[in-house]
Design a protein around this nucleic acid. Structure first.
Lengths: 208, 208
DNA sequence: TATTTAATGGAACCTATGTTTCGTTAAGAT
DNA sequence: ATCTTAACGAAACATAGGTTCCATTAAATA
């Protein structure tokens, strides 16, 4: 096979190629909603997208390649951090955006699929890591702003605060598989904020 | 096919049947370490276990069935909660036991596999949920003891505290796929404890 | 130790998944 | 408008993954 996903689609990305990609990613999401990552097949995706399966294999190579590309696509649509004027509002905005994403049929299924894929596929793992590290970095800004406003102690690690907001929600989604509720999101904010105010997110070697 | 994993192995569980199960679960773990859940095949497992593949299909039915059984087996080996005499020591003991498990080649691979399987298989999802809810319930005791000793506020939700200890570690393992370090475990304890002392884990309707 | 039959396992079998071939279509360039 | 060839897709093909059949082995019981 000619290199999947490398050569194909780069020289003439316009028109047909773009339409094929959109249709395939769309179909992939639909299939993930209905069958999960384990039940995802290249064949079904191709059929659903109205595209030759040869094309799907050529450009994406494998199921993991499909979900990795999907994740990359989502990364590009990432929304900027909120600025509500106060750290509590900002963190709530962050928690609720995660909450909504996880409970959205299409997005939630997609996240779970990529998480599953990433456990045994390096390509998917990288797409996943890239997505979250970018998102964390983006939202860490709200913490820096809060520190400047004097709402949180000097040296508070923004990235860690943002991780702490999301962690309990993903833990419920993927580990204990309990419903990810609005209350869970609110509690996560309250607890993270309590710890942050107590200085538990201050890193040893960062005093400016 | 006769009902997989229902009828088989229950009437004559001694001798050969037990040896087959042990060999198959052992082989499953080995395969998970080497190839991950996606690369796990019934065929390979059977060959590695030195067992007919018919047997594997008959008793476990699918890859998800294998990892679900593996998880059930681990649940039975679950160790009781620590009692170091202080809540900080107890929570550290909990965090370190999670840390060790996730960084252990065999256990870590197994957890990741079950998590992956659970995203699209209900049997695996149930085994996973059962394992963690049991573990959480078990360790929640250390929080109740701490409340009785006056170390934490009345009404502190033990299950939630234990979840909060683990969550950041699993989040790193499975979502951002960053290394799960000793420092991460220690930070998790410090932050959870700070929030707990501030009363952020007190549930509204539980004052005794 | 003999009997019954649960449980196993080799081998043949089948289907879905993945690959290769090659003719057709249309993007991009002139 | 014409040309070049990237990209697509139908169909034939290969094979790994999963299933069925039935003879063999050995638990459990007396």
């Amino acid at each position: 096979m000619d290199q999947p996903s490398r050569s194909a689609g780069t020289v003439r990305p316009g028109g047909r190629t773009a339409r094929v990609r959109a249709a395939v990613l769309e179909a992939t999401q639909d299939e993930l909603v209905e069958h999960g990552f384990h039940g995802l097949t290249m064949d079904q995706v191709a059929a659903r997208a109205g595209v030759g399966k040869t094309t799907v294999y050529r450009r994406w190579g494998s199921r993991a390649g499909l979900v990795a590309d999907l994740m990359t696509e989502l990364a590009n649509q990432s929304t900027p951090y909120a600025d509500t004027g106060g750290i509590e509002g900002d963190l709530r905005a962050n928690a609720f955006s995660v909450l909504e994403a996880l409970n959205d049929g299409r997005l939630g299924s997609t996240f779970q699929a990529v998480i599953a894929a990433a456990t045994s596929d390096e390509q998917a793992a990288q797409a996943l890591r890239a997505f979250y590290l970018r998102r964390i970095e983006e939202w860490a800004n709200v913490v820096d702003l809060a520190v400047k406003r004097g709402e949180l102690p000097e040296g508070t690690d923004g990235g860690e605060v943002i991780r702490a907001i999301s962690a309990p929600l993903y833990y419920r989604l993927v580990v204990t598989r309990e419903p990810v509720t609005r209350e869970a999101a609110e509690r996560s904010v309250a607890r993270t904020l309590a710890a942050a105010r107590a200085g538990a997110f201050v890193v040893p070697d960062s005093a400016g």
